[in-house]
Write a protein that binds this DNA or RNA. Structure first.
Length: 488
RNA sequence: CGGGGCGUAGCGCAGUCCGGUUAGCGUACCUGGUUUGGGACCAGGUGGUCGCAGGUUCGAAUCCUGCCGCCCCGACCA
C-alpha cells in the first residue's frame, strides 16, 4: 500500500486532509492559511464554475469584474457590514519596496505610504455599490443583474483546505432592483439555483432555509442558505443568498427615478458560493479508499486501463471504446502508462474518484467484452462492447442518482426531532446530524444554546410545518421547529 | 490568541536523551533484467547547506541562546 488514507472512523479530520492531499486536489502553500489548488482540484472547481455560470446566464445575469482593492473609507459606510468583516481584513499600506540599506534584501519603502489604505476585498458589496451609484439613474437601468468570479481574502485564524482558507475563489452576485418584492424574488431565485446545483450536479442534498438574525450576513435583512450534512454529522453552509433591502443603497446613495418621476433608493441582493463547495463534495461522498466524485462534476468520467499493459491490439480496442463513449458526451481517459501495473492503477484511480473504470485485456477482447467497475459501490461487471457508449452513459446516470440517494438516506438517518434539552445534547454528542427543535425566536436563546452545546441554528427551513410547541431552552411558545447542528 | 506536536533526500521517518568514521532506512526517481487480470521482484545508481542565526567544543543533526516556519486541537468565521 503505497498511499494510505486514515480511516474516517479513526480520525475524520485527518481523513479529509489525506483525501485532499493524496487525490491531488491541493497542497499547502508557503503562505499560512492559503492553499495551492492543483490541476485536478482546479478541474473540479472549473466544472462547478462552468455549470453555475451557465445557470446564472440562463437566469439573466452577466459577468463583470471589480477591483481587488477597496478604499478603507468604503468599508465603513455600512455599519453592520464593517463590523462583520473588520476583524479579518488584509490591509495594503505601501506601494513600493526598496533595497535594505543594511543589505538584508528588500524592505518596505517608508516613503511609499499610501494616503488612503486599501483593503483586500473580503467581499465586494462596498466597491460595487459605489460603482452602481453612477450606473443607476432611472427605473430603466433596473434590474441590474451582475455576477463576478473572483478571489477574496478573509484573514481566518484557523484554516482547512477548501473549507476555510484565507484566500478563496468564489462568485459573488450583486443585483439592484426597483422594488423590494423583486429583490426578494431574486434572492429566492438564486437560492433555488444553488439548491438545484447542489442536488443535481453535486449530488449533495441541501435544506433550504433562512438564517436567524445571529447568523445573517453582515448588512442583510434576510439571508437564505443551503445547508448540507457531512458524513461526520456536522453541517456545512454551502451557499447563501441575501436580501439586502436598501441598506447599501442608502450607504452609497444609490437612487433612481421611478415612472412617477420620484426618487427612490434601490433594493439589493447579493449571493455567493465558493471553493468551499469542493470541500463539501469531498465530505459528502468520499470513502476510506479515497475521493468519490459524482459523474457530472468528475474531470474524467471514465478511465480505460489496458491489461496488463498498453499493447497495440488492446489500445486499438480502447480507442474504439473511447470513441463510443465520447460520442455520448462522456469524458474518457485512456491510460497509456507502461510503468505501473494494473493493480496500482486501480488504486490510484479509486483514490482520485474516477466514477467508472474500464479494464480491458486480451481475454476480454476474445469475448467481445470489458470489465466495468463503478467507484461508488466498488462493484464490477462485464459489459459487451457493442453499444458500450449507451450502456456506460446509463451507468453514469445511475451512479449520479445513487450518490444523491445515498446522501439523502444518510441525512434522513441523521435528522432527529427532539423536545427537550437533554435529548438535544444527547443527539448532538452521540449521533450528530441535524436536530429539529422548537426555538422561541430570540437571539439570546440561540446564543445561550450555542455557548452550552456548540450547536447553532443552521436555518429556519422554508418548508417547516407550523405547529404549536415550546422552546427547548426557554420553554416559551414556538410555532415551528428549526434546524440545529454543529457546523463547519 | 491559547494548548499540543513537528522541522534530517520529492514524500514518510530513524538518529537528538548520552556530541565522535563518509548522516541512515523505507518509498519515489534513473539503468538493466525478470514479471504482468487488484498497490510486482532482483541488482546497480542519482539525490542532503540535518529550518535559520549565533554560541560552547579539537569536533555539533545531537548541547546552549535567539529567531522563523508548518501541522493538529480550541476560541472566531463562508
Amino acid at each position: 500500500m503505497a498511499k494510505e488514507i486514515t480511516p474516517r472512523s479513526e480520525n475524520y479530520s485527518q481523513w479529509y486532509l489525506d483525501i485532499v492531499k493524496k487525490a491531488g486536489l491541493a497542497d499547502n502553500s508557503a503562505v499560512r492559511g492559503c492553499m495551492v489548488i492543483k490541476p485536478y482540484g482546479y478541474a473540479i472547481w472549473e466544472k462547478m464554475r462552468d455549470q453555475l455560470d451557465k445557470m446564472f446566464k440562463e437566469t439573466g445575469h452577466v459577468n463583470a469584474y471589480f477591483p481587488l482593492f477597496i478604499p478603507k473609507s468604503f468599508l465603513s459606510k455600512e455599519a453592520e457590514h464593517v463590523e462583520g468583516f473588520a476583524k479579518e481584513c488584509a490591509v495594503v499600506t505601501h506601494h513600493r519596496l526598496m533595497n535594505d540599506p543594511n543589505g538584508n534584501g528588500v524592505v518596505v519603502d517608508p516613503d511609499a505610504k499610501l494616503e488612503e489604505e486599501l483593503i483586500v476585498r473580503p467581499t465586494s458589496e462596498t466597491i460595487i455599490w459605489h460603482t452602481y451609484k453612477d450606473w443607476i439613474k432611472s427605473y430603466r437601468d433596473l434590474p441590474l443583474l451582475i455576477n463576478q468570479w473572483a478571489n477574496v481574502v478573509r484573514w481566518e485564524m484557523r484554516t482547512r483546505p477548501f473549507l476555510r482558507t484565507a484566500e478563496f475563489l468564489w462568485q459573488e452576485g450583486h443585483t439592484a432592483h426597483a422594488t423590494a418584492e423583486e429583490a426578494m424574488e431574486e434572492a429566492a431565485l438564486i437560492h433555488e439555483v444553488y439548491t438545484r446545483f447542489a442536488e443535481d450536479f453535486m449530488a449533495m442534498p441541501v435544506i433550504k432555509g433562512a438564517k436567524s438574525a445571529n447568523e445573517r450576513f453582515a448588512g442583510a435583512l434576510e439571508t437564505y442558505t443551503i445547508e448540507a450534512l457531512m458524513q461526520d454529522g456536522k453541517a456545512l453552509q454551502a451557499g447563501t443568498s441575501h436580501f439586502l433591502g436598501q441598506n447599501f443603497a442608502k450607504a452609497f446613495d444609490v437612487t433612481f427615478l421611478n415612472q412617477q418621476n420620484t426618487e427612490e433608493y434601490v433594493w439589493a441582493t447579493s449571493w455567493g458560493v465558493s471553493t468551499r463547495l469542493v470541500g463539501g463534495l469531498i465530505m459528502t461522498h468520499s470513502d476510506d479508499e479515497g475521493l468519490v466524485l459524482p459523474p457530472k462534476l468528475a474531470p474524467t468520467q471514465v478511465v480505460i486501463v489496458p491489461i496488463p499493459k498498453p499493447e497495440p491490439e488492446i489500445m486499438i480496442a480502447a480507442d474504439r471504446i473511447a470513441d463510443d463513449l465520447k460520442a455520448k458526451g462522456i469524458s474518457v481517459l485512456i491510460d497509456t502508462d507502461d510503468k505501473n501495473r494494473p493493480g496500482f492503477k486501480f488504486a490510484e484511480y479509486e483514490m482520485k474518484g474516477v466514477p467508472v473504470r474500464i479494464g480491458l485485456g486480451k481475454r476480454d477482447l476474445e469475448n467481445n467484452q470489458c470489465e466495468v467497475a463503478r467507484r461508488d459501490t466498488k462493484t464490477k461487471e462485464f459489459y459487451k462492447l457493442d453499444n458500450i457508449g449507451a450502456a456506460v452513459a446509463d451507468l453514469l446516470d445511475d451512479i449520479q442518482n445513487n450518490l444523491l440517494q445515498r446522501a439523502k438516506d444518510f441525512r434522513s438517518e441523521h435528522t432527529t426531532a427532539v423536545d427537550n434539552m437533554k435529548d438535544f445534547v444527547d443527539v448532538l454528542d452521540n449521533k450528530g446530524g441535524f436536530v429539529l427543535a422548537h426555538w422561541d425566536g430570540s437571539p439570546e436563546t440561540e446564543q445561550k444554546i450555542k455557548e452550552e452545546t456548540k450547536a447553532t441554528i443552521r436555518c429556519i427551513p422554508l418548508d417547516a410545518v407550523e405547529e404549536e410547541g415550546t422552546c427547548i431552552y426557554s420553554g416559551k411558545k414556538s410555532n415551528k421547529k428549526v434546524i440545529f447542528a454543529r457546523a463547519y
